[in-house]
Design a protein around this nucleic acid. Structure first.
Lengths: 184, 184
DNA sequence: GTCTATATACAGATAGAC
DNA sequence: GTCTATCTGTATATAGAC
């Protein structure tokens, strides 16, 4: 992967997490890097190609981190708090989860983009579910691990969304406490 | 309020809930109504004026419904299920909460728009909190009503977001079960 | 209130030179 | 790989006639 391609993706991802895919233009992207928009089209012929690359890249980054968390022997509490910390870092930069942002724009995405987005969320849920199952003895909730995973992940996505408008982190904190309430 | 103005707002709201404010143009809005975009500017000089009207209108509609739910003597379970049903109706139309959608676009909104959005979410949380407090004896959670309200509302917003991508209603259902798990 | 006409800006995308 | 140049479409917004 070329360095330039990488820099384009870095910058594009940041813009998408703040302003959305519709808030990102090949022109401004090129300007910030110091090239022309036609050169950006060299790397990403269409905008949907850029979006696809961004989703793939973001997914890779996140799932690598999740794998590292899972591999490291630890309590469920520590593991999931490390998971939640990923969202907290996003919130601190006044951004959204990149895939959460694109989810809001799903009507204007290609079907490949949509599928990749859908895979991202189901992958995160699968990861969290497997952690909850693996540490079942540390859980005290009456709800199934699958449901708990769906609840927490959509809760975290929504918390990022609403907290950013309010300029606080109260909802993210509340979601964290929700998780803690599920532990024995 | 003129009939035309109303029809413009009706249509605009629907488009925003599906495609976002950036996905709404004065031109297409005018076309669908059968007038020219300059005539839309007669009602809403700038796009931020339209956005402000939409948020005010949406808030009014929702809070009227919440007031009706609160006024009608009922169990906490029935009241909150009626609250959740508002989200379920939105999901059925493959839309987002209009304010949830605009929350994703907050970086490109006027400060008045942001403040109105923030008020919408805090108003919903205040309503839900007051219901939880009023029916405290029906609750069994260790978390405070304020936190439960924040958890459920951001959870519902996130569930709409993620479910729409996945084309299911699993996360909304899971959030509903989460609420039910809080009852005695 | 609605129109025509237009100003201005910006979007995604492509052709072809270098 | 990057450029210049350009096509084409669309956006917000305004002026002024009717």
């Amino acid at each position: 992967m070329s360095d330039r391609r990488n820099k384009l993706e870095d910058l594009a991802q940041q813009v998408v997490q703040q302003n959305g895919l519709k808030g990102l233009s090949f022109r401004t992207l090129a300007d910030e890097i110091g090239i022309k928009s036609s050169s950006v089209h060299y790397y990403f012929p269409e905008k949907s190609d850029l979006a696809q690359a961004l989703i793939a890249r973001y997914s890779e980054t996140i799932f690598e981190r999740l794998e590292a968390i899972a591999k490291n022997p630890n309590t469920l509490q520590k593991k999931v708090l490390a998971f939640i910390a990923i969202f907290e870092q996003v919130a601190k930069d006044e951004k959204l989860c990149m895939c959460g942002m694109m989810a809001a724009e799903v009507e204007s995405l290609s079907t490949a983009n949509r599928d990749a987005l859908s895979d991202f969320f189901s992958g995160m849920e699968r990861w969290l579910t497997s952690q909850l199952v693996e540490h079942a003895e540390e859980l005290s909730s009456q709800l199934s691990p699958t449901k708990l995973a769906k609840i927490l992940i959509s809760g975290l996505e929504g918390a990022l969304l609403v907290d950013r408008v309010a300029g606080t982190n109260q909802r993210l904190k509340a979601q964290k406490e929700l998780f803690l309430s599920w532990l024995v």
